[in-house]
Amino acid sequence: MFKGLWRYRNFVLTAIQNEFRSRFIRSKLGGLWLILNPLSQVAIYALILSNVLAAKLPGITNHYAYSVYLMAGLLAWNLFNEIVMRCLTLFVEQGNLMKKMNFPKVTLPTIVTGSCMLNNVLLSIAMLTLFVILGFEFNFQMLWLVPLTLIVVLFAIGIGMIAGVLNVFLRDIGQVLPILMQVWFWFTPIVYPKSIIPEDYHGLMLLNPMAQIVNAYQNVLVYGRAVNLADLLPIITVSILLAVASLFLFRRASAEMVDVL
């Protein structure tokens, strides 16, 4: 499988490039929308919720602390959400191609991942620039973003591939997952600080891997703290397990996938 991927490396790169390019061709602001979209989300939350929630953000005095907090969480969530959602419909959308052309199917999720990561890099650059404008200082803890991004990607691919493969056979998954993701989003402290959750439920938060990773993003970007790797160990383990499971599923299903598409 990976040999095929290596042989098709050029194809994967041109595909990512083409996807990016086609975004600029038809719309005036092109790729800028990638950044404007999440930033407007930040603006909306900030506008509506800042008065309610900003006071609860402990330990920072900056006026824009809440906005920065939002951006940190959304940076992680956006990447996660984009990969999962695109993997979910990937095989169904590319069904025609898979039926007609013989090429390593593993290139498809690779292209999606690559293109989502590229978007995320652009978004991080935009956000970091905004941080500086809003009066936050750049610090070297921010380099933690690189390994953190990789963890999110691994976790998202695992979930996305499993959902995407199963969605070929059970289309309900394509309907259910967006709802679950919505719920998941609100059960992760992205828009609100962890501190507003009653102490009794903090244990439950530990079961949510995204809460751990989002927390790490916020620590790095808002507070400039180093990441505690021990905290991330569960999500790393889960991600690896999911990735292995998704590979197994993908290999098992790929023969039958074309049959039902």
Binding site: R7, Y8, N10, F11, T14, A15, N18, R21, S22, I25, R26, N96, L97, K100, M101, F103
Partner: peptide, 30 residues
Amino acid sequence: AILELGMGFNPDLTGRQNVMHAAGLMGFSN
């Protein structure tokens, strides 16, 4: 196979770019 003529052509890209893409899909190096 010539049965998938024009398969996967992206309407927004030029013929040249689509050719790159399609030949890549057939497994050829750049």
